[in-house]
Design a protein around this nucleic acid. Structure first.
Lengths: 245, 245
DNA sequence: CGAAGGATTGATTAGTCTCAACGCAAGTGG
DNA sequence: CCACTTGCGTTGAGACTAATCAATCCTTCG
């Protein structure tokens, strides 16, 4: 299944030069147990015992926490090719949920299979650690984004990061890419109100930096947007091409 | 060196029942290359190539990012027994810094030694993954804290978490523990201003929940503070005793 | 004793939230 | 094929949280 190969094995391979044999192992693991789910549904809910690692093949997934007072925080976005936490098995239960933003096609890899995969080659094991470190690195950047930047900067940063990640996966075309986020999603990801997100997006649009309409993101001024969001991609630790400038 | 044992090996051991032999390995790794550093100095700076894993033996360390506009975000706090990221070696360079808040005694474990340790026993490897997952879990909670809670709740949550972690390590006495954070540190950790932190602490104190004076934290109303901060320790995935109530 | 860092206070302003309404487009059922 | 529904985006007015600026106080320490 070339699709699974392209999106799961390749990001790992690009960093670590996995051997053809390694790639085959990864590819197989990611094509064994493919599932589909509709939009706005939980793949895993808080409290569930973690029983498998998920690999997103198609569509977007949000990692989020729901608070008792009704508010929710989106913690991260999983785009095609992303993996939910490696080795979650060592935890007793999920402290957050994974929910689809779109219809999603994904793979589940069980504990035994995952551990076999991780142990099958030192390079694969290392690649999985790398993915995990990049994930925590992104999480730290989000903490910083919400803690230190104002609405305008936050949203600019989020959109920059999103476009950048899509583009590294080969999912961008020119200055545009899919982006199924609603303004409410953006609000939940940035710690703002939907109303304020709306006004801020208008502001960004008015400044000629980005447009976000009909589930598509178009970056009209890449340099400007990066500057506005104080975005510097080093925290993504990419073995990757620079953004189209 | 029983101290290193107690603070580094034991947290791992408590979760995974490391064998005596495993403990010895961990203990040895953590006592080989001990260093000291004064307060308010960087152990590692952004941009440095990561060459070792650090284990905090004594004192507090903050993981932080410095922004160009002068603001800084404290990303997490390392208390005695904590490790900086396992396997950082797979990254090209640090995207944040580690700075001491107090005089700190710590250990550096180089790449070869660390990898040997991780591979020396499946239980140790698993324990290191567990630590890493707990760390990312805490980071997610911080994102949520800053994104969704107001100043009063944020600070209550931070102090709850801090006390809880200290107490799990055996570093609390009754309802008090050391806490070298200045109000400016708390501000940088919660995305607030020092001035507002000051007023909010007065508020918390006035409500009889906590006191923070002379580098000591005293929780005067544990239940109340947990409620105020919406604190529930499940995200710490503790194999641990409940907080003194 | 003087210096310096940290804590505290006051007055003012800015950024963001809240509440409430309305618009628009796509999908659905009669 | 049209009327209704529903989800999402947009707008306005007013309230409030937290930021800013600036000064003073307290404590610790050399």
């Amino acid at each position: 299944m070339p699709f699974a190969h392209c999106l799961f094995a390749e990001p790992l391979a690009s960093y670590l030069e996995l051997s053809a044999a390694d790639c085959k192992l990864v590819e197989e693991a990611a094509s064994r147990n493919v599932k589909m789910i509709g939009p706005r549904r939980d793949l895993v809910s808080e409290g569930d015992p973690p029983d498998s690692v998920k690999v997103v093949l198609e569509g977007w997934v949000a990692r989020y926490k729901q608070l008792r007072n009704g508010r929710r925080q989106i913690l991260s976005l999983l785009i095609p090719g992303d993996i939910s936490d490696s080795n979650v098995f060592v935890l007793d239960k999920m402290d957050h949920s994974l929910g689809s933003l779109t219809p999603v096609r994904y793979t589940e890899i069980g504990q035994a299979e995952f551990e076999a995969l991780a142990a099958s080659s030192p390079r694969i094991g290392k690649a999985l650690w790398w993915r995990e470190l990049v994930e925590i690195s992104i999480q730290r950047e989000w903490t910083t984004n919400i803690g230190q930047r104002n609405a305008y900067e936050r949203i600019a940063h989020l959109l920059c990061e999103t476009y950048w990640r899509m583009q590294v996966r080969g999912l961008a075309h020119g200055n545009t890419c899919d982006c199924p986020l609603t303004q409410t999603d953006i609000a939940d990801a940035t710690g703002l109100t939907p109303v304020h997100v709306n006004r801020t997006l208008q502001h960004l649009r008015g400044d000629g930096l980005v447009e976000l309409r009909a589930k598509r993101l178009r970056i009209t001024d890449p340099k400007g947007l990066q500057a506005a969001g104080m975005f510097s991609p080093s925290y993504l630790h990419p073995a990757a091409p620079p953004v189209a400038a």
